[in-house]
Simulated assay, not measured.
Amino acid sequence: MRDTPRRLRRATAALATLLVLAACADPGISPAGPVRAAPADLAAPCLTSSLKATVTLQPAATDSTVRVALVALTNTATEPCTLNGWLTISLVNAAEDVVPVPTIRLDQPRQPSTFQVEAGGSAYTGLKWISCEKTAPKCAVGANLRYSLGLKPEGPVAALKDFPPPRRSRLAMTELRIGVLTPAPEQALTW
């Protein structure tokens, strides 16, 4: 019994040594993955106020509850800007108050990377949500989607395209999934 603390110290020291050796095995890779600096010639980060969002509903199978939309973010500024990561999308009611809905940011269709959006150019992301009956419990119902590059649900409302007429276009969902921002529309919905 007196050897138990000694054995525990030896096992801890051995484990620490193995972890140090594993970390040193490939000095170019950190535990969180490779670290890459952004090219110095990229423009400044985009601002939400310089982007206009259009959300285009994609055709869905009649028996499916999954809805898919393509978000196009157009740079309305006179200068290029850069994007990386995700867009914050919030369901809002007619008064533009946020309607809480569980939201998941996915590393799809690829890992986030910094890219440039030219003045007048666009970036894209995909949205998928589980639709529900408006009267069902845990069904969030809204009239539009708000977007932001920040983490808070602040920002302008998006333009909705190819959605049913306004009286029928109320959005009803139990969950919202947001893909990574991409420079090409064909990449945005491949997940």
Rank of each mutant, 00 (worst) to 15 (best):
V99N: 02
L57Q: 09
M173V: 01
P156Y: 08
V35S: 13
S122R: 01
T54K: 07
E175M: 11
P5T: 08
L91E: 07
Y147C: 01
L83E: 09
L70T: 05
K161C: 03
A69N: 08
Y124H: 06
I178E: 02
G179N: 11
P112A: 12
R7H: 13
K138D: 14
L73A: 04
R146A: 11
A140R: 04
C46Y: 01
S131L: 00
R67I: 07
W191H: 13
N93F: 07
T54R: 10
A77K: 06
A22V: 13
A23W: 05
T135R: 12
Q187W: 02
G120F: 04
T88Q: 14
K52C: 03
D107S: 12
T54S: 09
T62H: 09
P185Q: 11
V66Y: 04
I104F: 11
D63I: 03
L15A: 15
E133W: 03
A172L: 03
L15Q: 11
A72F: 00
D41K: 13
R2T: 15
E154T: 07
V141E: 01
Q108R: 13
S148Q: 11
G126Y: 10
R67F: 05
C139D: 09
N75A: 04
A44E: 11
P185T: 10
E79T: 15
T174I: 01
L8T: 13
Q108H: 10
P153Q: 03
R110V: 15
F163P: 05
V99G: 00
T114G: 06
S148T: 07
A11F: 15
A77E: 12
A13F: 07
L73F: 08
A69P: 10
A172I: 04
L149Y: 06
